[in-house]
Simulated scan of single mutants.
Amino acid sequence: MQQHTPTSDSTLLDQGTVINPLKLSGLATLMDEVGISHSNSLDSLICASQQWRRHPGQERWEMQDLPLTADQHLAVMGHLKALNFVQELLPSSTNYEYSLFLGATVPGMERRLNHLARLWLEGVRFNKIVFLVGQRPLKEGIDNIDSLIANSIGEQARGKGARTARPITETEGAMQLFATMKLPGEMKKLPVEFVDSPRVWKQNHWQRANTRDTLIEWMKAVPAPGRTLVVSDQPHAHYQLEVVKQELPEAFQPEVTAQTADEGTRIILYLDALALWLHNLQSRIN
């Protein structure tokens, strides 16, 4: 059994609301690197960072990347690593009540499931897997639906009873993915819950459920408290953990695990995740 040593938290806050000056300075330097004005205060940095956020109704794959030089790219990545937005995050324990699996594109969920399976093989245990997913319509070029269907057909041919119907939503994609992926046998026998969070109409577009919405939906069922391992990936892990901590009672003791960020991750996606984390962190400061 492999011993896991958790990666340190990236928070700017030490002991409640005391600001970590070293990390605050690193955040300020990152903004200087990409030409964003600020006054060096945390409130100013949080406000300035929000220009990196997605527009309402916009998905991550629709965002345009920043036009950085090679030197700027290298410098920004250095600051992101210092804030722990790139590195793998490992669990601190080997025993949890819940594995709280956060939804994503189908390839993203496959990546997260592979990470969770690796942890299982290394001795990490959980009693139930909860998929926090929703009714986001799947998108052909983003969710690799044809590959998912091909894998389903392959599993059915091997007599494993996998569904071959074309999935329409993220929830259906998660169900089909879990049914068809090669995962550790005992892990696949665990109780599994799919929380199908609805979309809502926002003036002129359908707004899919975000991380907070899916947590609120799960809490409606009043699950029994228990230690919780949140399954994300980089660079989204820190803001998602912050939201989880805000929405779940303390008795759930949530912590996050995440794979190292994919080498092809665009800078704007790191910055969007950083801005979301700072936005959610602000509620603990004010």
Score class of each variant (00 low, 15 high):
Ala179Gly: 06
Val18Glu: 01
Gln207Lys: 13
Ala179Pro: 11
Ile36Trp: 08
Gln50Leu: 10
Leu116Lys: 14
Gln3Tyr: 07
Gln135Asp: 00
Glu140Ala: 15
Glu242Leu: 06
Lys202Leu: 06
Asp14Arg: 08
Gln207Asn: 12
Glu62Ser: 07
Trp201Glu: 11
Ala82Trp: 12
His55Met: 11
Thr7Lys: 14
Thr180Asn: 08
Ala275Val: 09
Thr164Ser: 15
Asn127Val: 10
Asn286Leu: 08
Val200Lys: 13
Arg208Thr: 05
Gln51Leu: 02
Leu100Thr: 09
Thr11Ile: 03
Glu122Met: 15
Asp213His: 11
Glu59Lys: 09
Phe178Tyr: 03
Thr94Ile: 12
Pro6Ile: 06
Val243Trp: 04
Gly264Phe: 04
Ala117Phe: 03
Val244Phe: 06
Thr211Gln: 04
Ser25Phe: 03
Leu271Cys: 15
Glu193Lys: 15
Arg212His: 05
Asn20Trp: 00
Leu74Ile: 07
Arg266Gly: 06
Arg284Tyr: 00
Leu190Lys: 14
Asn151Asp: 11
Glu250Pro: 01
Asn204Leu: 00
Ala209Val: 00
His38Thr: 05
Phe101Leu: 15
Thr260Val: 14
Gly16Val: 00
Leu30Lys: 07
Ala162Phe: 01
Asn151Met: 10
Gln15Met: 01
Asn151Ser: 13
Pro167Lys: 10
Leu190Val: 12
Leu281Asp: 04
Phe85His: 09
Leu90Lys: 11
Glu217His: 15
Leu274Gly: 03
Val222Ala: 11
Val222Asp: 12
Arg163Gly: 13
Asp43Cys: 02
Gln176Ile: 04
Lys189Cys: 13
Ser152Trp: 00
His4Ser: 06
Lys202Asn: 13
Ala75Leu: 12
Thr94Gln: 13
Cys47Lys: 14
Ser99Val: 12
Ser197Gly: 00
Ala261Ser: 11
Arg266His: 05
Leu190Glu: 10
Met175Trp: 01
Thr69Pro: 00
Gln2Gly: 13
Leu229Gln: 05
Gly141Thr: 14
Phe85Ser: 10
Ile285Gln: 02
Arg125Leu: 10
Ala251Pro: 00
Gly185Asp: 06
Leu12Arg: 02
Asp196Phe: 11
Arg118Asn: 07
Ser25Ile: 04
Glu122Arg: 15
Leu12Ser: 02
Thr214Gln: 12
Pro198Phe: 09
Arg284Ile: 03
Gly226Ser: 08
Leu27Gln: 05
Lys128Gln: 14
Met63Trp: 11
Asp9Trp: 03
Ala237Trp: 03
Leu281His: 05
Ala157Lys: 15
Phe126Ser: 10
Ile285Cys: 01
Val76Cys: 07
Ser93Val: 12
Gly226Thr: 10
His115Pro: 09
Ser10Pro: 04
Gly226Tyr: 09
Thr180Gly: 04
Trp61Glu: 09
Val192Cys: 12
Pro56Ser: 08
Ser8Trp: 00
Ala117His: 06
Gly57Ser: 01
Lys139Cys: 07
Ala258Leu: 07
His115Trp: 00
Leu116His: 09
Leu113Arg: 14
Lys245Ile: 04
His79Ser: 09
Gln72Gly: 00
Tyr239Ile: 04
Leu241Lys: 11
Asp213Lys: 10
Ser10Ala: 13
Met31Phe: 06
Asn280Gly: 08
Gln3Arg: 14
Leu229Ser: 11
Thr211Cys: 03
Thr29Arg: 15
Arg163Trp: 05
Lys160Ser: 03
Thr105Asn: 01
Ile153Met: 04
